[in-house]
């Protein structure tokens, strides 16, 4: 790179940033999409469709937040989709068993089910974190392994049959309920996002995650305890995936081993990446990832309303993903390298 280029580059990148900076581009696209769809199809802003979008976006946003945290620390979590299924199955099964043992005591039944579901998340997260941080196996391979194992356990428990027997109040009073006009999943997602944003900005954990993802060696030299924080990111990601599984179970009314899956996993990575999280680690903000999850959900919804063949829809998702990252990469290239 000659000097002229280095001098010229910052000015161009500033103008690029001001027009379509990473923070501005996605909300702008979102507004454009919403405005366009509202003009084309009145069904789009009907209450039923909006609630539908909010529910799905909330679930995706929760998983994507955890995924983003792991990626910011320089890792990968392929096991989230499988964990959604496992948590769903375990929650439903535990509730059914507890309900048989202590009929009528709804508080105990729900508490035990939710605890068991979240417990699955903690266990899988610890296994992932331990293998990555302590045994130093690549995050991709570890979570590929736990993905297969987790899916297997979920299917083993259910034999592929949906699990029923949850208390009515868990489904009708929580999963399908609305508070202040919003579905419960949206409230949970908002709380998760707020907590995660706070953790990212204001806590030592959040800052260390950036430090580890940005430059492991520098983080080590600065005295960051790498292993504990990497394990932390995987546990958070897994627990959030488990939470999504529980919310989905409450919504649908049964525990199913077919929830989540590869689709949820790939979408969570897509949401994180389109939301500006760099796969090189060290870069990314939770609130933009949440917006990106909303964007992806609305995009899918819009394609459905426009009667685009559901088989063709992955093509759009793929192209948008590659284009988003390619744009990001090209704008990075126009900046000087440090």
């Amino acid at each position: 790179m000659n000097t002229a280029l280095v001098v010229a580059a910052p000015r161009r990148s500033v103008s690029l940033r001001s027009i379509a900076g990473r923070i501005g581009l996605l909300p702008a696209l979102l507004v454009l999409l919403v405005a366009g769809m509202s003009a084309i199809d009145a069904q789009f802003y009907g209450l039923i469709n909006v609630l539908n979008i909010l529910r799905n976006a909330s679930l995706l946003a929760i998983v994507a937040c955890g995924q983003a945290l792991v990626i910011i620390a320089g890792g990968f979590d392929l096991s989230v989709g499988a964990l959604v299924a496992l948590a769903s199955v375990v929650t439903a099964k535990t509730m059914a068993v507890t309900a048989a043992a202590f009929p009528g005591s709804n508080g105990l039944i729900i508490a035990s089910g939710v605890a068991a579901g979240l417990g699955c998340g903690v266990v899988v997260g610890l296994v992932n974190g331990f293998c990555v941080a302590r045994l130093k196996v690549s995050g991709f391979v570890v979570t590929l392994g736990t993905m297969s194992a987790t899916t297997g356990v979920g299917l083993m428990i259910t034999n592929g049959i949906p699990v029923y027997g949850m208390p009515e109040i868990f489904v009708k009073g929580f999963g399908r309920a609305r508070a202040l006009g919003l579905p419960t999943a949206a409230h949970v997602a908002l709380i998760v996002i707020l907590v995660m944003v706070f953790a990212q900005r204001r806590t030592l954990f959040g800052r260390y995650v950036y430090a580890i993802g940005g430059n492991v060696d520098a983080a080590v030299v600065s005295g960051v305890t790498i292993q504990r924080h990497i394990v932390g990111t995987y546990v958070v990601s897994s627990v959030l995936a488990a939470l999504t599984g529980i919310l989905l179970t409450a919504q649908v009314g049964s525990g199913q081993a077919s929830f989540g899956g590869d689709r949820m996993m790939l979408q969570s990575i897509a949401a994180a990446v389109i939301g500006g999280v760099s796969l090189r680690g060290g870069v990314g903000r939770i609130e933009i990832v949440a917006v990106s999850a909303l964007f992806l959900t609305i995009l899918g919804n819009a394609l459905n309303l426009l009667h685009v063949d559901s088989r063709l829809q992955p093509v759009f998702l793929g192209i948008i993903m590659v284009a988003a990252v390619a744009l990001d990469e090209l704008s990075r290239r126009s900046k000087p390298r440090v």
Binding site: F76, L266, I269, A270, V273, L279, R280, D309, R311, L312, Q313, P314, V315, F316, L317, G318, I319, M321, V322, V325, A326, E329, L330, R333
Partner: peptide
Amino acid sequence: GVNPFVATLGSYNIAIGIATT
């Protein structure tokens, strides 16, 4: 210069779409 994971995840979706269509 796109990360291979994202690039091939993109073509993963595209190829699935083409195959099923």
